[in-house]
Design a protein around this nucleic acid. Structure first.
Lengths: 346, 346
DNA sequence: GTGTTTGGCGCAATCGTTTTCGTAAAAAAA
DNA sequence: TTTTTTTACGAAAACGATTGCGCCAAACAC
């Protein structure tokens, strides 16, 4: 079964013209008389001629498609970002091919190679939690493939980046907990190799220090798999809960960590925020119907997707090699809800 | 900036062979001596030769990619389904191009035409809420483009379908509410043109009738935009709440309607399930941390995505025209949580 | 009337691959 | 030795579109 479309050759035959004449007519070349142009255009319109993009890609050496690698699409942050990517790409007539690394280094490598061999014109990437080495991307980049990073970025490749203000987001979240009167504030975060981890960790630490407190390493839990493995998150949480001076608040550093932590605490029948308060990075559209509603650091995911796509397309379409790169840092928003309220002591 | 890869021609030149010999060697043709094959293969491996998929597509007339049109990806049902689609597609070496209709008929038409002109080999579709006419798809199908439907299907095109057992899911949800002692059970659902709407409505009605009750049209609210427009859902809900014999339970028919309804009820400070119980179709991974945790009809989204992709690829790769089609109906699961508990009257 | 310009179009190469067909040399059969 | 078969390879067309170049005829200049 296959899909037969009308080609330039069909038009040429039907009108008794040569293939090149038709092609030029369709492109409005001055070499072709208005008469012939009109004739060709009319015929093309009538039979709904659409140039075969595959043939065009082959000829032009560009496929008008961009590849995207994120860890996961069933996560509101990334699905919103993808909405942004798609909207800009479509508007500029690029196709988007989405792939998921599921936080696995191996899948990220496989996807990047697969996409580049599928001749995407460029790549948009948010690194996987397992990725600490970006040689696979360096290779592609050196061969001339435009790459742009968002969210989880690396400085090992000189290119555009779009991130949220992770430092400030984390700082504000932590300061908010401090202002609410919490003192033993734990932080559950992802793999230390991720840019977002270090930035958020930094914001968290700085807020504590600015409040005259000494960040305590025991209160910081790293989850290498970024919440993809629930057991890992559970253990991190258990370690916190079993401490003699157990935290009175937790700041979680990602969407999945936030929902997983909330879910686990509820399963353990731990009252939030009564026994432990919770603030998390999350773009979940349901954060206000969680139990309790979840105080969240919200990233401008849609805008991030839009901007990184614009930057990538600039890179792709640039005639001359680009040598100066942008690092855009977009503002986050702290949405205060019930999970971080300091209840009066009973 | 462009990405230069090694071609078959480069290999030919380097080894002093002809292009066709190299091609045949790479394909293991019997026409080529083992010696030459080994030489070519070694060279190809060393220089990481990858056939240019665009050239292959042009030659073969197939692009090894499939298009997907869903209303939305930031919705756990669809993102899970896409996970299923991707996993099967990737395993069979197909690319997946995902697009969103956002419940708009116009965008669905535009996307389907764009995808077909981008020479996808086939299309997987879940219809938009606004779509009542599928002529745009009929046209493509008649031209020979393989199409397969999941979730929101149509019988206007003879092809494979994969759906959840919407009738049974709705029946069980309604029966559950009845068993809990609720009597005035309302139903908020999507556009009546959608298959899922009629099937779920049917299950809802039948459950009431089997309990000796007469379905009351006033308790059934249709949202043409399937929850994409919050105001529409709000009005439907308000109409229910303002009825003299206001419902004591609501059964919502889709992911977005469920979360929106829950959110609205909470904003109005209506106690769930005390004043109104709630059961919804949803695949939200956070349903158990909602407030209250949400009793849900869960669809096997991943499996649905996998199965429809297998069926589509069968269609694409079939040598002879396929004349018998499958309609697979997968089981749903009712997850009972707090939102539907009948509390003792105070 | 000869020479030059220009308008309008077609030829053919090209992108990278696949595939049919032809052919030279080597091997086998006569 | 001659004929046939086999082996191993190359030439070329094709997929659909783009584009530089060449060509013919009409229009113009002189």
């Amino acid at each position: 079964m296959k899909f037969e479309a009308i080609t330039i050759k069909d038009i040429a035959k039907a009108l008794g013209l040569s293939i090149s004449t038709v092609s030029k007519a369709l492109h409005g070349s001055h070499e072709i008389s208005n008469e012939t142009k009109a004739q060709v255009l009319a015929y093309a319109k009538q039979y709904k001629y659409k140039p075969n993009p595959i043939a065009q890609s082959l000829k032009r050496g560009r496929s008008k498609s961009i590849g995207v690698i994120v860890c996961n699409i069933d996560n509101n942050f990334f699905s919103q970002a993808i909405n942004g990517i798609e909207s800009v790409a479509r508007q500029k007539d690029y196709n988007v091919i989405i792939t998921q690394s599921r936080e696995s280094y191996d899948r990220e490598v496989a996807n990047s190679e697969h996409l580049s061999s599928r001749s995407v014109d460029g790549l948009i990437i948010s690194l996987s939690a397992e990725t600490s080495n970006v040689d696979h991307l360096v290779r592609l980049h050196q061969k001339g493939l435009p790459i742009a990073f968002f969210d989880r970025v690396t400085d090992a490749i000189a290119t555009h980046q779009v991130i949220a203000d992770n430092y400030k987001g984390a700082y504000e979240a932590t300061r908010h907990l401090l202002q609410q009167g919490f003192r033993r504030i734990a932080h559950i975060t992802s793999s230390p190799s991720l840019s977002i981890t270090t930035e958020r960790l930094h914001g968290y630490r700085q807020a504590l220090e600015d409040a005259g407190m000494q960040p305590d390493q025991r209160y910081i839990k790293l989850c290498e798999h970024g919440g993809m493995i629930q057991e890992e998150t559970r253990q991190a949480l258990m370690q916190l809960l079993e401490m003699p001076d157990r935290p009175d608040a937790i700041f979680t550093a990602s969407d999945r960590l936030s929902t997983t932590t909330l879910s686990l605490l509820r399963q353990m029948r731990i009252d939030i925020p009564g026994q432990i308060a919770l603030v998390g990075f999350t773009n979940s559209i349901s954060a206000d119907i969680f139990n309790p509603s979840l105080t969240a650091v919200v990233q401008p995911a849609l805008e991030m997707g839009q901007q990184i796509t614009e930057l990538l397309i600039q890179l792709i379409e640039s005639k001359r090699p680009v040598t100066t790169f942008q690092k855009r840092i977009l503002d986050t928003e702290l949405k205060i809800r019930d999970s971080s309220l300091h209840l009066p002591r009973l």
